[in-house]
Structure formats: structure tokens, C-alpha cells
Design a protein around this nucleic acid. Structure first.
Lengths: 255, 255
DNA sequence: GAGTGGTCTAGACCACGCG
DNA sequence: GCGTGGTCTAGACCACTCG
């Protein structure tokens, strides 16, 4: 440990995360090239002045992100497609505002903003009772002044407080993270294709035969509380959803 | 260690995976109830006769699967929605044949089966040269005798050997895992909505205004070699793709 | 302050791949 | 056989939550 001023940052992050980020940067910079071997765990432990277990925890991070491949007996190599994986990681979809930061102008039109009681389905998805009021927000997001997605969000007041229509016109996620100081955890999403409704045709300006890509999701805070149940409808020509699936880690449980 | 006959299985799996599975089963059986605390790491270490670090590695597995929540100072609890998460885990999408095992009759019609050289795009996706031949396979999968998906797969012969049209009429994934003895690793998918092509309308029996849900993916073996680049087109009314996204672990690298 | 989970160590043995 | 990564230990200190 010894989290004193080790030279660089005083950020007091854990060593293994620091090391993981350093190694990630080396892959990004091309210091470690796709297909080539990384130094052995022993060598890395010596370089960073730490134990092998700590190096292994750092490598776990990179491995989960599909950036490296570890083979018993053989060694650790940089994964194929590591560069494109890095691209995907950096564009991890947390919110539309963040996703397009620096790449396009995002504007938001709040079509509906209401506080009401949840229906049975919403109660179940958000793990709340029928007496917990929720925000019901319908927003149209534009990118570069062209309609991009139609977002219908339900959030419980018991978790998200002091949300206003004005905030909803900006980035709700940024508000939650910076103003409320809450950490976003995991989400479960179902992605489907659908026929456009009248609202879709009106707001997304699509024709009746142009499909809609819908993402229906429940999002949780890091402490496990569900805070958003939403259905987002996209024009079919405005890109898709990119997903990395690691069968190994998920199926590690089943063997 | 001490992987001798410890009493139950002789499967020689690592302790922490064994423990993870045991704990998972307890959640599944309701021995540990959603929202309630698990025994502390210290208690679990005593119960399983192991060290705390090993228990932590087991809990890492459950945590990655979104089955538990760990809070410093507070304790470890069963995650909300743990039961539905278990459902999703058990239906992890590896192949259509497996997905519907026991739930519907899957039949496959091989529409095209060819060995040829890859184009530039396929070379890039599969990390192969222009002289490495590939299988080009188009299949129609039916569930309960109704068209379900139209699958176009490209696989390099350098990785997948001895594939025949007859095998393609069954489950290619089962062939790869059991006959070739290869382990499937991770996949990267892009999910989009699209307008049906003539082939879609013909084989999936959908109308020109019924959207298609397309999953375009590159799948890797556990050792990192890409072995399949495919585009699968689904009828929009036959369900969607369910995805669990763990922001914490993926963003652990970015902080 | 007591108890919890998070991090870290130094050392050990094992399983695997390769020459 | 040697070097690699995989697993495991016993113990330590830290950070956090809660009564």
C-alpha cells in the first residue's frame, strides 16, 4: 500500500487500478502491440514495486475489458482488435449528452414533464410501492439539430430528488452524478425493433415504413437502487447499440 | 489447493468457482433472499474452510454477474432483481440451438454453403489474410416450424476445420465446442434495426413494412482468435436482445 | 468502537506450454 | 526442465458504516 505521494498523482486510487490504467495507456499508445507479449507478471511486479497478486488484479481489469489474453504456460498478449475495443470502451453509452460530447451538438426538447404515481409495471421495475411518486419525462434529443432519439423515462422521487424541467432539458445523468453525487452502477437492457408509432413519425420525422430501434432499460445506482426505467426510440439510420459480451466470465458461474 | 477428494466432486475446479456456484445456488434456492445480508466474508471463510481472499474471489464472480452488492462498512446483500438476473444468465445467448433447448423445436435450412476467399472487410474482422479461405454460410433457422432468424456467417478454415453442410444444418456452436474441443470466448455485437430486404421478406415471411432486428457480431475463441463474423436478421416480433451492462467494471479502467 | 468489505504482501504449489 | 499464468494462504492495515 503506502499511498503516500508516490511521485505522480495524489488521487489515492488503489494501486491495481493505477497499474491497470498505466497498462491500458501503454496499449493505447502502442507501447504494447497487438499480438505481442506483455512483460511477465513477475517482471511487472518488479517494475511497479508491488506483489504479483496486485499485478494479477490489474490484469483482471484489462482481461475483463477484452484488452489482453492470458494463457497459462504461454504468457499474456495484447488482444486482437484491442484498438477498436478501446474505442468502444471510451464511447461507453451512459447518456446521449456524454456520448456526443465534442462530436456533435446535442439539444433537448422536453415534451412532457410530470410527477405522478407509478403503475404496476413501473413499481415492479423500480422496486417501489404504489405510493412512491415518480417523474414521467418525455424528451426529444436532437444531434446537430436533427432528431436522434425519443426518450421516455420514469424515475422515483425517492432516489432522484429536485429534478426540474430545466435540468431535464440538459443532461439528467450529469445532474445525478455531479449534483446529487450518486454513482451509476449497472443496467439491464432489452433491444428490439419496432414499427414507428404516430409520435415516432411526428417527432423523429420518420416514415411509416422506417423501423425504430428501441432500447428498454432499467438502470441502477452503484448501491443497487434502481433509479430509471426508460424506453428510448431511435431512428434506424442513426446507428445501433454496441455490446461486448464476455462468455467466459458470465459462464464461469455455470461450470 | 489440496484438490484431493474433498468430499463432493472430483471435478478439480478451483475452490473459488466452486464456492461461487454454491453461493449462486443458495440465491437461486432462496436461502439468501433479495435485500438480505449474506454472511460476512470472515464467516464464509470459516464455513468453507478457506481464506478470506478466496471468498473474495468467489464474491467477485457473483458481483460481476450483478447478483450481489458489496458495501464497505455495511456488508454484502443480495441484489434486487437477482432472480431475473439469474434467468438472463441461464439464457445467455451463445447459439440459437442452445437458447431454445427444451423450449421449442429448432430446425435449420442451409440456403448456401460455400468455401471462398474473404473480401477486405471480412479479412479485417477475422484478422486473416486474403489467402485464408473462409466458409460462407447462409442459414434459415426455424423455431416450432416458424421462421425465426436468417443467419449469414463467415468463418475461416484456419480456425474451424472440417465443417460440412450437414453439420451446418445442426448446431455449429455445439460442433465447435464438443467435436473440435474449442472454447468460445467473447463477442462484440452491433445491434441495429433495418428495412427488410427481399431475402428477408422471402425467408422470414415478413411484410415490406415490418422491421428487421439485425445483430452483427464478431465472435472469438477463448484464446482470442476470431472465428466467426456473422449477421443475423430477426423478425421484429420474435423478441429482442437482452444485455447486462456493468458500468462499474468497464469504467473501473477510466477513473 | 466494533464489524464490515477493500487492498496488499511474501511466499508457496499447481497446471500448462514449449523447446 | 523451465518459465508462464492460476490458485491459495495467513496475516496485516485501511476505509467505511453504523449504533
Amino acid at each position: 500500500m503506502l499511498k503516500l505521494t508516490l511521485g505522480r498523482k495524489v488521487t489515492t486510487i488503489s494501486q491495481y487500478k493505477d497499474i491497470a490504467n498505466t497498462l491500458k495507456a501503454r496499449i493505447q499508445n502502442g507501447d504494447y502491440v497487438t499480438g505481442e507479449h506483455l512483460p511477465s507478471q513477475k517482471e511487472l511486479a518488479e517494475e511497479f514495486g508491488t506483489s504479483r497478486v496486485t499485478i494479477q488484479k490489474a490484469l483482471d481489469e484489462l482481461s475483463n475489458a477484452n484488452l489482453i489474453l492470458r494463457r497459462q504456460g504461454s504468457g499474456t498478449t495484447v488482444a486482437p482488435n484491442s484498438q477498436s475495443t478501446l474505442d468502444i470502451l471510451s464511447s461507453q453509452y451512459e447518456g446521449t449528452t456524454k456520448l456526443f460530447a465534442g462530436r456533435g451538438k446535442v439539444s433537448t426538447q422536453v415534451l412532457h414533464f410530470e410527477i405522478r404515481l407509478p403503475n404496476a409495471h413501473e413499481q415492479k421495475r423500480l422496486s417501489i410501492s404504489d405510493s412512491t411518486p415518480v417523474y414521467d419525462i418525455l424528451r426529444l434529443r436532437n444531434v446537430d439539430d436533427k432528431p436522434y432519439e425519443l426518450d421516455h423515462s420514469i424515475m422515483p422521487l425517492s432516489v432522484i430528488r429536485n429534478l426540474t424541467e430545466k435540468i431535464a432539458a440538459g443532461s439528467i445523468y450529469t445532474f445525478i452524478e455531479t449534483q446529487l453525487g450518486l454513482k451509476i452502477g449497472s443496467s439491464i437492457r432489452k433491444i428490439t425493433a419496432d414499427i414507428p408509432s404516430e409520435d415516432d413519425q411526428k417527432y423523429l420525422q420518420c416514415h411509416h415504413n422506417e423501423p425504430i430501434l428501441q432500447v428498454s432499460q432499467t438502470v441502477h445506482l452503484a448501491d443497487g437502487r434502481p433509479f430509471e426505467y426508460s424506453q428510448t426510440r431511435h431512428r434506424y439510420d442513426k446507428g445501433g447499440v454496441i455490446v461486448i459480451n464476455n462468455f467466459l466470465s458470465s459462464n464461469g458461474l455455470e461450470a
